[in-house]
């Protein structure tokens, strides 16, 4: 659940502002000169073929890897260039859902969701348990609070991971391939959940994905990365890009190579 703007008094700065970001591992540069902005409350997709650097960009955005150049700002404040203490303070405003859920296997679902609350809040134990149950209930896992990750399915793990990502009511939630490994129905339900979270709390959502169904269904805007170009080759609404882009790479990706926008 995000910090909600009941009376939106945002100062107008974008939720995320990325300027000339250079990402890579060691000496190897994966992406160069990546710049984009994400507005508050936007559902923003980072798309592209396999191996184009989507997950790499996400890891650099949230500080899991350090960019070799450029800067990232969240809600108007510098992040990538900030000192470790400031970054840690900012991190509590983000939530992240990893590809496989990344639940801590030795903890129950309730304990998984409760851990960030125990770390960052001064709530009583009972309140933390209630909130954890609420979060799990919101992602449809009511009644599974005391199950261990090994006892639930892949889709449930993702939802539990989302409940944990939402534990601290973040203002921005990052999703790394939320549909990967899920059946179409579960995938669609997860998409609905993402839209619901945004509608309810005005959360900014950043999704890394190459699932066209999700992209067309819920994305407000996308950027498309390309391996050879080592950066962004297109930016805009997915349907507009699919119909109006002159770039054959964009067209091919967004129309599955058919030249027609899929009827999703």
């Amino acid at each position: 659940m995000s910090a909600l703007n009941v009376n939106h008094t945002g100062n107008g700065s974008p939720a995320i502002e990325v300027s000339s970001l250079v990402c890579g591992y060691g000496d190897q540069t994966i992406l160069r000169d990546v710049s984009f902005k994400v507005a508050r409350g936007e559902i923003f997709f980072i798309v592209g073929g396999s191996g184009c650097g989507k997950s790499t960009l996400l890891r650099h955005l949230v500080g899991l890897n350090t960019p070799t150049g450029g800067s990232v700002r969240f809600l108007g404040s510098p992040f990538s260039e900030a000192d470790a203490g400031t970054r840690r303070a900012q991190l509590r405003h983000f939530g992240m859902l990893f590809q496989g859920g990344a639940l801590w296997s030795s903890l129950t679902l309730r304990q998984n969701v409760a851990l960030p609350l125990e770390e960052y809040t001064s709530l009583k134990r009972r309140e933390i348990e209630e909130l954890s149950a609420l979060k799990l209930g919101q992602v449809g896992l009511g009644g599974y609070e005391d199950y261990y990750p090994a006892e639930i399915s892949g889709g449930m793990k993702k939802r539990a991971g989302l409940a944990r990502a939402l534990a601290l009511d973040p203002e921005i939630v990052f999703f790394d391939e939320p549909s990967a490994g899920l059946d179409p129905v579960t995938s669609r339900k997860l998409d609905e959940l993402i839209v619901e979270i945004r509608a309810m709390f005005g959360t900014t959502i950043v999704v890394v994905s190459h699932e066209l169904a999700s992209i067309y269904d819920i994305a407000d805007r996308v950027i498309m990365l390309e391996k050879q170009a080592q950066g962004i080759i297109a930016e805009g609404s997915p349907r507009a890009l699919a119909t109006t882009s002159n770039d054959p790479r964009v067209k091919e990706f967004l129309t599955r190579g058919t030249g027609k926008v899929p009827l999703l």
Binding site: N7, L134, D169
Partner: peptide
């Protein structure tokens, strides 16, 4: 008069 709220208000 609430400007922003989250789970703490619910609690």
């Amino acid at each position: 008069a609430v400007q922003r709220w989250d789970s703490s208000l619910l609690l």
